[in-house]
Design a protein around this nucleic acid. Structure first.
Length: 950
RNA sequence: GCCCAUGUGGCGGAAUAGGUAGACGCACAGGACUUAAAAUCCUGCGAGCAUUAAAACUCAUGCCGGUUCAAGUCCGGCCGUGGGCACCA
């Protein structure tokens, strides 16, 4: 006996629609609950099974909340501006509005077939003039608040789409829309001052309950970093070059300045630059490169020395050369950096390539421990020491000596005497300590380091400055060592692989690592050297001290920089909201008067992006030409349109009062609904849509337009539904599943149940039609349960505890979005029902009601045909009776020495001794404790008994 | 490179606070019903050892080590996969 899901589902959907079952009222006695799922882009391909997952999940929650007595707002609408409709228009030469209408119809039919409890009376599309009127109005409020401005800026440009992109849309140098590599282009663009909200967006996160990973993504995107601006005087001109640095403590190590190719000095002082042609050529070259090429970190550094300009280091008056390179970004900090090659990877690579001096200002500082811990009661001595990492002439081994008294194994080391250099000292020490004479020193390592320890053999504390040399023996020719030396230490060859573990101190291990891996910048922490008043200080202290110095001398100040930049708000596209601004020769930019909104998007002869980089709207003369609202003279309209993100930056507000024609929404309505309680959307929107929407809302709040600062209380993200082959569904891979086919074959309830059961809601999951079949089978079994009904109106005794447990589990699981275990709990309950001869009417009604949020149609139908009660849409949610789920006996395991050896049945009120006795009496447990001494017995009530024997 | 996830049977995945690992489902195998198939129902199902059968035993949550009476869960170190950011000074 299978059920006729097609007619049942249709019947209930029509009933809900006709009766307005899910229409939400603004106001009333009930507590409000606002559930929002991101509205879809209605594309031509129709609903994706991924939509089904999130819509069903939030629908289940909405249904549960209603049954729990909340006034639930669960709306749906359409984000219908954007690329696909425009592509369609370009291809077919038709105005996109009709196509959008068709797509919306398809989507709506499919979403309705899913049986979602959306309040359709609040539906709208972002392309509705009544809606975008208010999008435009809000833009004007941004403008009036000084938060929208037009500026000539280097922007991200997609050569394929022929439009500018925001930084968010061009992340990683790739166009979000088409995947082409973007370039930079100088263009006049409308910008929104999002950067001035950077701190506010950061702080606001604390008020939300977003998932940590979403918060982290936003924090990273905003990219706050604290440091200092430092002004370098110029030698040739009366000007200062300002740089941003997070490490002002390394100022004594600055050996060059690097300007970004776009830096203003290159134009400003063109006449002072002797190689200006070379400079310009480099800049040209940079501009031709795509963003990806330019930021490829594996490529070699390039750059040009600016001949004719020199900077003065403010801390020591040193003259510093100035370079330009594309590794310095114009868009971050001041577009110029101070170069500290000794302690920065990029600067190091640049300095090595162009032979720029390297000055070490930080040294690693090792401190001995254990036997070599500094002893305050002993004197301190300073020494210059050389350490020699010497390789075997033919094998992969290194020369070491073992101290016979203490057992230490180290490289050959010794003090540098008189005016010896480290290399001479190393040779002398090697001969003395090992007798080997044919020594070839290859190089001295770039950086020195400190080691501090108590030297037991000399009974003093030592602070040594270590110079490291690397070399190899030419052959094993050796002289006889002194008797004293032979007694003191033994010569050893240590395998390269064993070196690190064998060497005695961290300092020697550090030497070995450097000797083996080669030179590189020292980016780890240490203490300052060669830095005058900073010498001996650690990082934090030195930064603080330097900041004081800079501020005192007026040559720098503490500042903060953000990765987040202003929002590039112009698009040279057709299918978007026209930006309601007019340009007048005399008055400049003048807003379109508010009473003239909406500024309707006109039809154009061609929808294609133009080759000159202007919006297609610029070709409609009668629309472009207008009069200035301010002076009445001839003026022209802005022809750029808004980005796709504009319409989605306030849509949740409109749902609160979608028909309002005097404001974006009535204030009372906005106050009533307040924040969105739960907002669900894809992880891909965690940094873009979500950041834009929060920014937009904060601006509205600051201007008194909305009553809450943070629009969303909690943000969650669903995982993707992948194809059966575990890859993203796509036409080209042939793994797309069409929800319509699933409705047809298995029904909406089965599809809903399956997608809730498929796995962790927050993780990606691969589609499996067999899994769907299994869920259909589950619903069939639920349906067949009706044949077991008796006339009882109370729970069956045998099932009562389990039913109450399931009520608890399902309620909690839906509230916490653990849908898969909710379905599983219902399956377990069904299995229990099936083992019964008969079930009561209340048994049946409860399992149906618990399943109702997930499979609403079949459960309502069964409830009706079996006359079990009023529809679930007007019933209260069942409450778990805790007193019924207390079990009187339970089974627990018994472990012996941590291994499970048996299990015993105990009653709930049994005391510890009795449980212990039972455990010790267990046959198999006896086998394992026989003849052994029981050391202790641990009884954890309701969990386990653990016996330890010897 | 940095940040965030994540790693459990043939598969999707369970396992509230460290407490009987593998719930539930799929697939598979055997059986019942049937002329037969489908559907349905019953049984089994991590690996090994063993086997007449069962019990028992050993090993198992990416790898190595640690804490603990007890580790999928906690700590340290690796490895793999996925995602985000990335010449951000």
């Amino acid at each position: 006996m299978n059920y006729d899901f097609k007619n049942i589902e249709k019947k209930w959907q029509e009933k809900w629609e006709k009766e307005g079952t899910f229409v939400a009222e603004n106001g009333g006695d009930k507590e409000k609950y606002y559930v929002l799922v991101e509205f879809p882009y209605p594309s031509g391909v129709g609903l994706h099974v991924g939509h089904v997952r999130s819509y069903t999940a939030l629908d289940s929650l909405a249904r549960l909340k209603r049954a729990q007595g909340y006034n639930v707002l669960f709306p749906m609408g359409w984000d219908s501006f954007g690329a696909p409709a425009e592509q369609y228009a370009i291809k077919n030469h038709v105005y996109p509005a009709n196509m959008v209408k068709d797509c919306i119809e398809t989507f709506k039919r499919q979403i309705k077939a899913l049986g979602s409890s959306f309040d359709w009376t609040r539906e709208f599309a972002t392309t509705d003039p009544e809606y975008y009127k208010w999008t435009q109005w809000q833009f004007l409020q941004f403008y009036k608040a000084g938060l929208a401005y037009k500026a000539e800026k280097e922007i991200n440009w997609c050569p394929n789409c022929k439009t500018g992109l925001s930084n968010e849309d061009a992340a990683g140098g790739v166009c979000e829309r088409c995947g082409s590599s973007t370039t930079k282009k100088l263009k006049n663009q409308w910008m929104l001052k999002m950067s001035s909200y950077a701190d506010s967006l950061l702080d606001g996160l604390a008020e939300t309950e977003f998932w940590d990973k979403i918060k982290i993504a936003q924090i990273n995107w905003i990219g706050k970093s604290t440091g200092a601006e430092v002004n370098f005087k110029m030698k040739e001109v009366e000007d200062t070059l300002t740089v941003f640095t997070t490490r002002c403590d390394t100022l004594f190590g600055v050996t060059a300045m690097v300007l970004s190719p776009e830096h203003e000095f290159l134009n400003k002082y063109a006449d002072k630059i002797n190689n200006i042609d070379e400079v310009r050529a480099y800049r040209e070259q940079t501009h031709k490169k795509s963003e990806i090429e330019r930021t490829d970190m594996t490529k070699e550094k390039t750059g040009v020395k600016i001949d004719g300009l020199t900077a003065i280091n403010p801390v020591n008056g040193a003259e510093i050369e100035i370079w330009m390179s594309d590794y310095v970004l114009a868009s971050y900090g001041t577009g110029a950096i101070m170069m500290v090659p000794a302690h920065d990877d990029r600067d190091y690579a640049f300095a090595k390539k162009f032979d720029i001096p390297i000055v070490q200002v930080i040294a690693k500082n090792f401190v001995g421990s254990g036997d070599s811990t500094i002893r305050p009661d002993k004197p301190f001595t300073d020494r210059q020491v050389v350490i020699a990492a010497i390789a075997h002439p033919t094998e992969d081994k290194y020369l070491c000596v073992k101290n016979n008294k203490f057992g230490w194994i180290n490289f050959v080391m010794g003090g540098i005497e008189g005016d010896e250099n480290p290399i001479e000292a190393a040779k002398r020490e090697i001969i003395e300590e090992t007798g080997y004479t044919e020594i070839e020193i290859e190089r001295e390592m770039e950086f020195v380091y400190f080691d501090n320890f108590f030297a037991r053999h000399k009974d003093v504390n030592r602070h040594i400055t270590c110079h490291t040399v690397v070399g190899r023996l030419k052959n094993l020719d050796a002289i006889e060592r002194s008797e004293e030396e032979s007694e003191l230490q033994e010569v050893m060859w240590i395998d390269k692989e064993k070196l690190i573990e064998t060497l005695n101190t961290n300092a020697h291990k550090y030497d070995a690592t450097r000797a083996l891996e080669g030179d590189g910048p020292l980016t780890e922490e240490g203490v300052h050297i060669n830095s005058d008043f900073l010498d001996g200080l650690g990082k934090e202290e030195a930064i603080e001290r330097m900041l004081e110095f800079l501020e005192e001398k007026g040559i720098g100040k503490k500042t903060t920089n953000y990765r987040l930049q202003d929002w590039i708000f112009s698009r040279q596209r057709f299918w978007g909201e026209p930006i309601p601004m007019i340009h007048c020769e005399k008055c400049g930019w003048v807003p379109v008067p508010e009473e003239e909104l909406p500024l309707i998007l006109p039809d154009v002869p061609s929808y294609e992006p133009t080759d000159n980089g202007e919006s297609p709207l610029s070709t409609v003369d009668e629309w472009v030409n207008t009069t200035c609202p301010s002076c009445g003279n001839h003026a022209v309209r802005e022809t750029d349109t808004m980005p796709n993100w504009a319409g989605s930056s306030w849509y949740w507000i409109r749902y609160m009062d979608p028909k309002c024609d005097t404001a974006i929404a009535n204030m009372d309505a906005m106050k009533y609904w307040g924040q969105v309680d739960l907002y669900n959307g894809g992880m891909e929107h965690a940094t873009r849509h979500l950041l834009y929407a929060r920014f937009w809302n904060q601006v509205l709040f600051d201007n008194g337009i909305v009553p809450v600062r943070e629009p969303f209380k909690k943000r969650v993200a669903h995982g993707m539904i992948l194809g059966e082959n575990n890859e993203k569904m796509s036409k080209s891979k042939g793994n797309v599943v069409n929800p319509d086919d699933m409705f047809e074959t298995y029904g909406a309830d089965a599809l809903r149940t399956y997608e809730m059961f498929i796995g962790d809601y927050t993780k990606d999951a691969a589609w499996s039609e067999n899994g769907l079949k299994g869920c259909k089978k589950f619903l069939d079994r639920i349906f067949r349960l009706q044949t077991k009904l008796n006339d009882d109106e109370e729970y069956s005794k045998e099932l009562e505890a389990m039913i109450n447990k399931t009520i608890k589990k399902v309620t909690e699981d839906i509230e916490t979005m653990n849908y898969n275990t909710a379905v599983s709990a219902l399956m377990i309950l069904l299995n229990a029902y099936d083992k019964q001869e008969k079930i009561s009417r209340k048994d049946y009604r409860t399992i149906l009601q618990l399943l109702n949020p997930i499979a609403p149609h079949v459960t309502e139908e069964l409830n009706e045909i079996c006359k079990l009660g009023v529809p679930f849409t007007s019933s209260d949610w069942p409450i778990c009776d805790e007193s019924k789920i207390v079990e009187d006996t339970y089974e627990i395991g018994v472990q012996v020495n941590g291994k499970l050896r048996g299990s015993i049945v105990v009653s709930a009120d049994e005391n510890e001794n009795s449980i212990k006795e039972k455990a010790l009496a267990n046959e198999n447990v006896i086998k394992h404790i026989e003849g052994k001494e029981i050391i202790k017995t641990i009884v954890i009530p309701k969990r386990i008994v653990s016996i330890v024997v010897k």
